[in-house]
Design a protein around this nucleic acid. Sequence first.
RNA 1: CACCCCAUGGAGUAGCGGUUAGCUCACCUCCCUUUCACGGAGGUAGCACGGGUUCGAAUCCCGUUGGGGUGACCA
Length: 445
Amino acid sequence: MDSVRVRFAPSPTGMFHIGSARTALFNWLYARHTGGTFVLRIEDTDAARNKPEYVDVILQGMKWLGMNVDEGPQLDGTIKGDKGPYFQSQRGAIYKKYVDRLLAEDKAYESDGAIKFRVPKTPIDVADLICGDRQIDRTNEPDLVIQRKDGSPVFHLVNVVDDLEMGITHVIRGEDHLSNTHKHLALIQAFGAKPPHYAHIPLILNPNGSKMSKRDVGASIADYKEQGYLHEAVVNYLCLLGWSPKDNREVISIAEVIEKFDLPQVNRSNAHFDLNKLFWINGEYMRAASLESIEPLAIEMLRKGGVLPESYDPVYFRAALAIVKEKIKLGRELPEWMGYFFREDFDFDPAAMKKVFTPEGLANLAKLNERLQGVDEKCFTATDLENEFKALAAATGQKVGAFIHPARLAVSGRSVGPSLYHLLEVLGKTRVLSRMERAKGQGGA
RNA sequence: CACCCCAUGGAGUAGCGGUUAGCUCACCUCCCUUUCACGGAGGUAGCACGGGUUCGAAUCCCGUUGGGGUGACCA
């Protein structure tokens, strides 16, 4: 059998849609699984809607998700492959040749200035690797416009010609094209060519079941990057929409997906997009990620949130990130969780203040302050601090929580955060004491 | 309206003639615990409906209903 050639053929309209990304992913996965070739073809025949710079949006999204292109335009502006051009806007002569041929063979004719293809009225068989085979009745099928009045070819024509010319063996695309496939087959038969295998993958729907469009939440791949999702998590989630490793696992490496992925196992029913699950998967990846691997993301998120100073102590930063990373699921949470590490004038959460900075709470804070002053800087570690807290609690006949909660609020302004003892260790004695001092003046409102 | 595809809890799925219908997210309870999260133990919740076929159906067939898609001189 010939080696597999698949293609992703997006129309660059300004965003990289999650549905497109999933289609690209399944094509890419199949190419990698079979050792085939992944082609990127830009369907930019609609000049009114497509802009050259929009191609970069798609390329960047694909790169972020970890998909590399074997043939077609690259991010650096170069073009790979010898089956080009890979932009439909540059293939006008090729399309014309095919249209002329149809005309010459009387398989197409002119009508009102446009060119129409004579669609045979006989039944036609449509085979699909995912959806199965069926027969389409064409007795009432109208002829198909393949070239507009202005001379430009339409989608059905260019799509088929390009797949043929580029030697595409498997057309993996959204199920929204399933109903059009018989038209493509008709064209291919008219050209006397061998059709590719078709595999229509299910669509991604909104949680409410409506078709996911540009404006819907979660539609743009760029948003995920912006919100601090980990690309491995997003890809992992996308793989699970319409495909399953069938062994009750959810978190799976892309390498393993490549190994197991195959077309016949792709589901036939549409999937609903579920942000909850993505969120959970992201948390899984977040906790599993090494500190080094998420440091760039953390810096980006904190810079964007405006909470990271121009210059900072990298050792201190990493120590802070290390204890915070275990608690969050999304990069977007970082500014809120880490801002107080880098400033002394943070606000105190009003609700927490009311609850924790009571007269008793503040009194305990004062006692704690006094006690910690006596702790050697070298002993300002999580383990030693825990002992100090426990000793103090025992000495005053109270629970440790009576000191922990005021301490947390005093040093971070928040009621939730990383393990307190570790937090104090990372902040260090100087900051801790001065922050406690500052908190003294904050009576519960 | 016509044609096509689909149908397991709220969501993603496993199942492919015989199962107490499994898993994950979400939700609820409890445990762990310095908060949150993690982790652990439970719980609520499902084969859309109706006919067949069969000794036996979530699994096969038909119909209905529901959802989605297509029906462009958009892609």
